[in-house]
Design a protein around this nucleic acid. Sequence first.
DNA 1: ACCGTAAGCGGCACTCGGTGCCATCCGCCA
DNA 2: TGGCGGATGGCACCGAGTGCCGCTTACGGT
Lengths: 192, 192
Amino acid sequence: MTGTVGRSARAQRLENVALELFATQGFDETTVDELAVAGGVGRRTFFRYFPTKLDVVLGELDDGLAALAAVLGAQPGDDPVAAARAAFLAVNHYAAAELPALRRRLGLIEDVPELAARATVRYRDWEQTLAADAARRWEVDAGSLRAQVFGRAVVAAMRAVFSAWHARPEADADALGALVAEAFDQLGRGFS
Amino acid sequence: MTGTVGRSARAQRLENVALELFATQGFDETTVDELAVAGGVGRRTFFRYFPTKLDVVLGELDDGLAALAAVLGAQPGDDPVAAARAAFLAVNHYAAAELPALRRRLGLIEDVPELAARATVRYRDWEQTLAADAARRWEVDAGSLRAQVFGRAVVAAMRAVFSAWHARPEADADALGALVAEAFDQLGRGFS
DNA sequence: ACCGTAAGCGGCACTCGGTGCCATCCGCCA
DNA sequence: TGGCGGATGGCACCGAGTGCCGCTTACGGT
């Protein structure tokens, strides 16, 4: 409950050091002991800041979800696609300085299977948030197949977007927005 | 490389016993030692049959992928949605006797986060298979955003289908087929 | 200034999943 | 009968994660 901003300077330092080690040695090859030592902290304490080694990389995602939910709820209209598109464009607005860190994170998530796996667990909340929003606008049940397919398809599309963006080393923040827009066009239009 | 059928009687027995224990005690609450003892086998040997405790539950998925890829490739036409729909309907044709086991499996995957996580890693191959097929029919690049969004959205929709089917205890094999059809209609038509 | 308390810290020991190594056992073939 | 290869499983080990507990430190009240 430290709030969305704080996280104490310690956690921040720990995270930076950890990502640095992951980048140089690899995720699996870096033990928690090393992270603790490098962060100047006891192993036991490390686990108080991060419940899991994985959470060092994935921690941010939860903040993203909270932001998405807020923006999504504020969107007008009865078209979930338009609402979700606007919400994702609003939330994924990164400053140029943040892009390298984002790239590093995405890279890790992409090619460490363990991380990819855990990330998708987090995405389940996103899926349900999107499904609930769509259900509200369509005036159907949130558990209905249509709402559920929508929620999951949107998250799937966003994964594709980030993957495509990450694959092009020179892509900037605008490129990300363009990919988001294109993906939502696909979802709105249908694939047939 | 034991082939799609064999898996040796031992593995089969091990799997049955394990699923039984998972159902009664829970997945996390069952240790590999218990599985080995219950299966009348050494712990070390257990890990020769299943690289991971998770694989006891998820093993089947790979067979499904192979089947899907084969059927998908044989579909005619230039509409990936129609091809994927036909392939999924063909592959997911379960005999009534298999449904209880399927339910048990889905139940585990749904509410053991660890399993849900690993399952999605397996699905990545499905996504890429579907993306490649769509790319072929559309005559675009398999890495293109359109193909990637398609592949991932289809798998996402299928997850929604299985989830919805599992949520209704009385749903039979026909109901599963109906849900698949409905989901593909959504994907083909679009959500706007 | 002094003391009591609470919170953060971190060492220690333990559980459990997973792996490498190696001795053993069994069936099979010459 | 002797040997050979594959399957087995015991053993020791590693790394992640957890409960327990003693220690320090900072803070608030008198």
